[in-house]
Simulated scan of single mutants.
Amino acid sequence: MTNRYCPADLPALTAEELRDIWERNRVPDVRDLLWEIARLRQRVSSAHYFIALVEVGQPGAQLMAHTYLANFAAEPCVLEEIEADYSSGTPGSRKWRGEIPTDEELQLFEAMHREARERINERKRRRRR
């Protein structure tokens, strides 16, 4: 896992604060960022619910784990971490262990980058209008 600097003392923003940001910054790029934040907040809420089910020993929670892992495995931040691990020479990394990406992983990485480039280009076109 790559280490990125994220100050530990930054407070988590509430929904009210996010709405306030939107009210003061009604531009398409801020809207895109707020949609991503809303999507990630939903993921956190869903994960919290799942963990609570596991913690109380809810029947069927183990079966749900596969779905949750698949959903998280498709997240760009997870795919980026895996992709970076294949390039890292850090002891314990995939590259250090001599592993190479599977064809399926390579396809996932390429699709992620292709879709991201398409969205970036759309945002650039939007800015020129």
Rank of each mutant, 00 (worst) to 15 (best):
Q58W: 07
T14S: 15
Y49G: 03
T102L: 01
L63T: 01
A52T: 06
R125V: 10
F72W: 05
Q58L: 05
L13S: 05
H113S: 09
S93Y: 10
F72I: 02
L63A: 08
T14D: 07
R39Y: 01
I37Y: 01
P11K: 13
V44P: 10
P7W: 06
R24T: 07
L63N: 06
E75F: 10
E75A: 09
K95Y: 10
E115W: 06
I82L: 14
R128C: 13
M1R: 12
L63H: 02
V44D: 14
F109N: 05
A47N: 15
E80G: 13
L108P: 00
N25C: 07
Y86V: 07
E83W: 07
E75M: 10
D103H: 07
L34P: 01
D20W: 15
E16Q: 12
A111D: 13
H113Y: 13
Y49W: 07
A52I: 02
T2G: 09
Y68I: 10
Y5M: 07
L40S: 07
Q107S: 14
M112Q: 09
Y86A: 05
Y49T: 05
P28Y: 02
R43I: 06
I100Y: 03
A52V: 04
E55S: 03
P91R: 02
D32W: 12
E36M: 14
A12V: 04
R127H: 12
N25W: 01
A47G: 13
